[in-house]
Amino acid sequence: MKHTHNHQGNCRDLLGQLSDYVDGVLQDELCMELERHISECKNCQIVVDTMKKTIYLYHSTSSNGEIPAGVRSRLFSSLNLEEFLKPE
């Protein structure tokens, strides 16, 4: 499963642009160049796809949950804000 990724000098150069590319902020010119490359380079295509998926997985499992009620009421107490502690 392991092999080095230097069959084309291009692959290495593109590494630095990966973040901008997956964030959609890579300059048009560079973006086209990168897309041309990955259309011909299986490994780079995989790196792009799995990086996107990695970010997606972390984003989707990052909870937006509320803090536990006990934590909230202790927070209000520690700030002497009990009088404002109404249930949400």
Binding site: M1, H3, T4, L15, N43, I46, K53, T61
Partner: peptide, 27 residues
């Protein structure tokens, strides 16, 4: 000096596998 070593395409794994409880602990 980062070197890429992994070129496995695991994107096709089902969500149930990608986000299993065990996987989330690993993440």
């Amino acid at each position: 000096d980062f070197t890429l070593v992994q070129f496995v395409d695991w994107c096709c794994l089902p969500e149930s596998e990608l986000l299993s409880t065990e996987a989330q602990v690993y993440l």
